[in-house]
Design a protein around this nucleic acid. Sequence first.
DNA 1: CTCTGCTACGCCCTCTGCTGGTAAAGT
DNA 2: AACTTTACCAGCAGAGGGCGTAGCAGAG
Length: 571
Amino acid sequence: MAATEISVLSEQFTKIKELELMPEKGLKEEEEDGVYREKDHRSPGELEAECTAGALQDSVLEEELELVPASSEESEKHILTLQTAPFTSEAFELQDLSLLSIQQQEGGQVMVQQAGPGLLWLEEGPQQSLQQYLAISIQEELYSLQEMEVLQLHLLEDNVLASEESKLAASLAESAGLTKLQERQEKEQLLPERRLAERTKEQFLHLGAMPGDKGSDEIFLKISNLNVEEQEDRPIAVPANVEKAKSAENQRQTKGAKRTFCCDVCVFTSSRMSSFHRHMKTHTSEKPHLCHLCLKTFRTATLLRNHVNTHTGTRPYKCSDCNMAFVTSGELVRHRRYKHTHEKPFKCSMCKYASVEASKLKRHVRSHTGERPFQCCQCSYASRDTYKLKRHMRTHSGEKPYECHVCHARFTQSGTMKIHTQQKHNENVPKHQCPHCATIIARKSDLRVHIRNLHTYSAAELKCRYCSAVFHERYALIQHQKTHKNEKRFKCEHCSYACKQARHMTAHVRTHTGEKPFTCLSCNKCFRQKQLLKVHFRKYHDASFIPAVYKCPKCDKGFSRWVLYKLSISA
DNA sequence: CTCTGCTACGCCCTCTGCTGGTAAAGT
DNA sequence: AACTTTACCAGCAGAGGGCGTAGCAGAG
C-alpha cells in the first residue's frame, strides 16, 4: 500500500485547500455524558458545522465498530478545509466513489485507506437527492496525511450553502458526529467478537465534516484520534444493506456509569446493547427469516413462527372461558377483553365511550372532531375510516356483493340483504307497534317516520277540510276528518244531487251548464270529465292500448279492475 | 433466543338511522 | 281517474365490535 501524490484536480471535485494538524488538547473537554465536544472558542460557523458533522454518516456495508473518543491528551484535530466546486450528476458514476478508512499508524502517521465504493450519508428528512450525499474518494488505497498537503475529495454537493447546513445541523444537533470507518472486503465479514479482538489494538480517527462560515462554500473535515473502547458489549455492525443507517456510535457513555445506546435515525434509546442492535435492524431491509410456504420474509424468528402458524392453523393460545384460540398471546388478551373481562382501557375525554383498542378510540374521536381523512376520488364524499370509504365506493362501481339465497336479489350491504331476507322470506317477521295508534310497521325506522309524520306536535294549526275544527297533530286531524266520511256535504244548487267530494260536484254541475272542457285532439269530440276523454282516446285512437285483465285463479273469470279481482279472490 | 405486552393497520361484521322511490290504498 | 297519503323497500352512511396479522421492544 503506497501513498501516492494527488492526481490532477478536477473542477468538479472539491479540493482541500489546507490541511492543518492541530493539537486537540484544550479544544475539547469531556462532558458529563462522556461525549467530547468542542469548546466554544471556535467561530459560529465551525460550531454549526460541528453539529452538522453528526449528519455525515457513512453507510456501513458490513460491520462497524464502536468508536469512542480517546483521551483528550491523545486526541488531535485535523482541519481539512474543502472548497465546493461545480458538480453535475452526470459527471459521476456512483460506484466510482469511495469511503475512507483512517488509521493512525506506528510513528504517528495518519493513514487514510480507501474503503471501497460507498457514500457518506448526509441526511435531512426523508428526501434524499444525489446532491445531498457527500462522498469521499481517494486515488490510492493508503495515504499518509503527513505526506500530503492536499487531499482530493469528491464532494457530491453542487452547492452546499451554510443555510442548508444549518438546517441539517439543527435537525441533527444531538449527533455526536462520529463518522464510521468501514471495510468492505468480503473476507472481513467476521464474527463481531473476532473482529472486535482484532480491532481493539487499532486507533481510529474521528472524521467529521462541517460547513464553513456562513456564506462560505468551504467545508471542513475534522479528524481527531479515536480509540476503540475495550468493552465486550459494544454495539456491533449494522448489516451490509443498510439503507438509512446513520452512525450507531453516538451513544453517550461515561466510564463506570450505565451506558445508553441512542439511535441516530429515530428517538430510540436502550440500555441494552442487544436491544439496540436489534433495533438498528429495523432501519435496514434485512429480513433473513423466510417462510417456506409463501416465501415471505421476516426480521425475526418469532415473527416468522407466528406467520407460519397462520398457514398451519396452529393456535397455541386458548381462551379458558370459551373455545376460541389464537396465534398470539396478544390476540387472546384482546379477545378476553372484548368477550369476557370487558376491560376498556382507552377512554374518550369528550364522552363516556371507552374501547378495548386504541385504534377504536382514535376512530371514535373522529366522530367528535368531524375529521374525515379518507376522501373519495370520484365524489366529494369523505369518510372517517377506511371501511366506510370502501363501502361507499360500491355506489360508484355498482358492485352488489351480497345475494339473497332465496330470490337471488343482490345488495350493496349485508345489512340490507339481511333485512330483505328477514322480511321477504321469513315467516316470523318482527313487527313494530306504534305506541300512539294501532298501526303496525315492519321496520323500526319506518315506524319512526310514521311517528314523525303523524304523531309529532305541529306548531301550525291543522284545519279540518270539512269544518272549523283545528288540531296540532296530524293523526288527530285524520281521525277527525274520518267522522265526516259519509257526509254528503256538497249539494247541487240546481237539483237534489249531493255528494261527498267537491270535484264530483264540479263534474255534476257541468250537466247543468253543458260545459265540456276536455277535447279530443284526434277527432275534436268533447267530454265533461278528463277520464272520459282518456278512455275515449285509448279506445278509438291508441292502437297500442291493451286493456288489463285480472284473471281469477279459481273461476278463470277475467276482471278489468284490480279491486274486482281481489274481491273475487277473497270470496 | 424467546416470551410477552403492546401498537398499528386492515378487514369484516352488525346495528342503527335517514332518505327517497314506489306501490297500494284512500279520497 | 287523478291525486294524496303512507307503509314498504332498497340504498346508503354513521358508529362501533371483533378478529387477523405484522411489527416492535422490554425482559428473562
